[in-house]
Design a protein around this nucleic acid. Sequence first.
DNA 1: CTGAAAGCGCTAACAA
DNA 2: TTGTTAGCGCTTTCAG
Lengths: 352, 352
Amino acid sequence: MSSRRVTMADVARRAGVSRTAASFVLSGRTDMRIAEATQKRIHQAARELGYRPNLTARSLRTSVTSTFALISDTIATTAYAGQVIHGALDAATAQGRVLLVAETQGDPVAEARLVEGMLDRQVDGFVYAAMFTHEVTPPSALRNHPVVLLNCLADDFPAASVIPDEYAAGCLAAQTLLGAGHREGIYVLGGRHAIPETPSGVFAGRERVSGIETVLSSAGVRLAGVVECDWQPQDGYRELRELLSRHRPRALICCNDRLALGAYQALAEVSLSVPQDVSVISFDDSDLASWLRPRLTSIALPHYDLGRRAVELLLSDQLAPVRHRIPMPLRLRASVAPITSAPGSQQAVRER
Amino acid sequence: MSSRRVTMADVARRAGVSRTAASFVLSGRTDMRIAEATQKRIHQAARELGYRPNLTARSLRTSVTSTFALISDTIATTAYAGQVIHGALDAATAQGRVLLVAETQGDPVAEARLVEGMLDRQVDGFVYAAMFTHEVTPPSALRNHPVVLLNCLADDFPAASVIPDEYAAGCLAAQTLLGAGHREGIYVLGGRHAIPETPSGVFAGRERVSGIETVLSSAGVRLAGVVECDWQPQDGYRELRELLSRHRPRALICCNDRLALGAYQALAEVSLSVPQDVSVISFDDSDLASWLRPRLTSIALPHYDLGRRAVELLLSDQLAPVRHRIPMPLRLRASVAPITSAPGSQQAVRER
DNA sequence: CTGAAAGCGCTAACAA
DNA sequence: TTGTTAGCGCTTTCAG
């Protein structure tokens, strides 16, 4: 649309130097020891002409595009995980790189097509991302290219992966409760996510429960129960209502904030108050956590850091097949309180 | 990393034709009338060699990159708005285009830098997006390039814009309530968002209230009140508690689901039940809407469609400075009920 | 320090 | 129908 972009030849001509000299100076190389004055002249000419390099041409020549591809199953779709993109973007832009984003929707054919498209565009590397931590098999076309796995694992694919440290998060949840004096009536709501569709649970669930159990048992505390169910609000509500009909929990570890929402609803209905009667701690730290009343203590899924780290690995060429575990920070809010004397003061949910 | 990509010259050689012929056939052009047999031979050679075009080279030659840039203030960051990216991606991939995503964080300097980077990469067009509908001033460097404004308006910038049809949504909210028999005690919670930081409100607020008022007054119904406040859960909670201390609403129009969450909390505390005592309708249709109990009727922000439409406009070169209003669909759930006889049966919130 | 020249892989006049 | 040729804008030897 604009008339014609000014090229490096234009700059060289105006500065009265060779294109070589212009190239060296403009791409900021110092190893040719060009006269200070000449450099100034070139830069000035470039400025006056409004010169901008044509990166396509440069890429063709150098076969580096300064572009990474972020390919995910459905990451852009899911709430909050836009943070992953955000982190990746920050790391990329900080180094003058740019990010091509694509979604496969879990369709291997679409995925193959997308990967090819990226390869045709000569991207420098790939972030292969998943919505929730699980085992994946990246397309084999990626084998010969720099790849970092984000929030997923691939046993027979030689790539670094970046995942949340769910085990440590589980430990942290247990420690937090212990620290508040809880030693009895501690339940895990959601568990390993062992439901018919995922009989052996999901990675996050398994790791969290494992961390919880380790810490508790080494403190001589026994978990009162692990409720295996799906992780949606209605599951939390239903399962907790069911549980409340038989037991009287003092502390709830919810496997995500949505379950905690369901739990709040169930607790309110039987007039148990958080945290006076029941402490609640959760995972994810979604927006929901600070919207609930009382505000929910939650251990954050480090979306931003995952995205950021993945790109940083790509940038620094740390591609060895290592699992990089990203810490999940605790956001302490009002839903966990030191245990009080009498268990069972049946009061209505309080404000705040 | 891989040995060497096979080039078009390789294909031509193996097929025993000229590079020209190969180029024509492989880029799927028909206007040169190449012999059927030759075409077959070329395609076969390409297949056997695993040929893939180098799009960088093609771009350098044709100066089209099949790449669009999606530049936003903070769109990837905000929950649910990942749907915008999703829609844009779908439209782009459907036509073999690819999307470069970037975020400015509202920083004009970062923005300028990013736009330059995109321009240097010769992108074919821009989607300039905002997190919430408002007036923007895109960098002037974009003036000579195809641009579509997404979820924002720019008076003195000649570009098409794609925005949610908030006015129609306001009408729809009012109609829904009227349809359920509500004629009194209807309040708008959130209003135009007229708070100190945005004294004249925000676009969505103004349009919604305007739609609501138009429909109600043409039905001879007067709004009982418009509560101007910020649109966070705690604002909904606080303002409704305050309102409830003096009035007795029969229907609430909440300007977003977060306000509705706050409203639910306030209503529960004074033992008013939704929808028996108070009907609630909201805007956005975020995940929250289906998580609340009872499930919240909400008018959806069409994130996906916005993204999709913006890219479609770019693809079809519909760049005239027109406002394209995207419909906001009603998601009818349990929070709106036909009005019952006696206003004021003070019961506890029911299940479901 | 500077300039000439080759070439990245592809497209598109033009000529044969 | 096919082949020849000239670039797109840039980097990078290699001589001067």
